[in-house]
Design a protein around this nucleic acid. Structure first.
Lengths: 129, 129
DNA sequence: ATAAACCTTACTGTAGGTGTAAGGTCAAGT
DNA sequence: ACTTGACCTTACACCTACAGTAAGGTTTAT
């Protein structure tokens, strides 16, 4: 199949598929006589795997690792476990930071009941400290 | 004062200060005879304002707007309110997304009690759908 | 005198793509 | 036969918000 077909099956746009090939996340695609990329069902599976990982915000370098681990039959699940666990920790950290941010912004948003710009409490708060 | 002094007072590194000048977030700095940038107390205040905004993840373009609004004595607070409100909404959306992410990752992390890579439930889950 | 600490510009790289230009190919319709 | 439109190709620029590095000039302290 051609790139657009792969794109439809995986919900990854062609542009991004070529990009993934460029950076080595996908192997170099086979080409047919006119130079178009040619894909098979293995590519569909691999790309869906990648898309699912990206949806979970797993960085591309770590996806590369996950793919390598899968290819190596002798490796154990513990590497996979660790990677997912780390990703989970990162997400939880982000959530904590975002909640602090939300508190600050909310306090800021409700601080000004004025209408005169020179007296605006929001701007004053932003200047302070 | 010179750039390093400004940096210490505002907790913004010199590199970033020059960058802000490049992109027009800070006005072109005055120069003294040797070509070094020369700053005054107004610059301290302005840069602290910018830092506080960045800590709240307000994008640089919106900080530019906030600075313009402040300079214009005829403008009302409503623009400021709106901007902060939008930022708050963005942060809340990110939190919502992150919480969904956390759920997915947690489910994934606890799905595999296996140790054989070819049977790893995590990898299977990532391939599916 | 010299070394450390500071200043300058300019260019490159980061993550994960998206946008755009300029062109080749292919199938269908007129 | 010709054209139109949909598809394919590469290559380069752009996005955010900086950080790193090179290569060089200046100032300050010892």
């Amino acid at each position: 199949m051609k790139i657009n077909q792969l794109s439809k099956l995986t919900k990854v746009i062609s542009k991004t598929i070529r990009y993934y090939e460029d950076i080595g996340l996908l192997p170099k695609a086979a080409r047919n006589s006119n130079g178009y990329r040619e894909y098979g069902s293995g590519d569909v599976e691999r790309l869906i795997f990648i898309r699912r990982c990206r949806e979970l915000q797993i960085p591309i370098d770590q996806i590369k690792q996950l793919i390598q681990v899968q290819a190596d039959k002798t490796s154990s699940c513990s590497e996979v476990d660790l990677l997912i666990e780390q990703q989970l920790e990162k997400v939880r950290n982000t959530i904590r930071e975002m909640l602090l941010l939300e508190t600050s912004l909310h306090a800021l948003a409700t601080s000004c009941s004025n209408d005169i710009i020179s007296e605006c409490a929001i701007l004053k708060n932003l200047k302070g400290q």
